[in-house]
Amino acid sequence: MTMLLKVENVSKCYFGKTALTNINYSLEKGKITGLLGPNGSGKSTLLKIIAGLIPCDSGNIYIDEKPLSYRTKADVAYLPEVDIFPPNIKVKEILAFYNKVFQDFNFKKAKKLLNELGLQESLTPNTMSKGMRTRLKVVVTLARECPLLLLDEPLSGIDPLSRDQIIKAIAREFASEHQSIILSTHEVFESEGLFDEIILLNQGSICLRGDAEQLRESSSLRKLLEEVYR
């Protein structure tokens, strides 16, 4: 099986405070990883490093066997946790912007997704709810036809209907033949049906990883989660 992503001995400090310690992890093509852990465990930092947005202090990262650089950014679609859209620009123009910036942006797919996720082109972000803005982030990320999707907390703090729509959109659009996804969440039990494998981060280290179905059966995941989240 080819590894789409390899993370080797990655560590990161912010102003002397450790965010990640010696992370080793590889992701096969065609898999969805659930990146779990409480707030502040290093999930967003890891995703930002893989996306090439912040440097790591030590360690190596390879995407499709190429070392991380500005070139690998073409292979990664990153959905940030924070709001990214200017407040008073129409959805229509946002899609046009993405279409211009990203060569792999599939405009037709974006319009289809927009429809399926119940959004209209005439809306502007300042008139949309948090759930709608998150759905829009999902639209522009899933519309990119690239090998690695990094979704940082796409299911947190939004209404159950939005959450359901987003999970369905991921299940529908995930191209399991040539794509992989890492999805981070601190609300563990919402999205567990989506995961092939699970990584549990705690205080910047991986404290558990494995096949999601096996972990479910062995119940070690549940026990660990209870400890970590206590």
Binding site: G30, K31, I32, D164, I167, K168, A171, R172, F174, S176, G193, L194, F195, D196, E213
Partner: peptide, 11 residues
């Protein structure tokens, strides 16, 4: 079925 049940198509 994956979409219907909110699960990964691999499952």
């Amino acid at each position: 079925l994956a979409v219907l049940m909110n699960v990964n198509p691999n499952t």
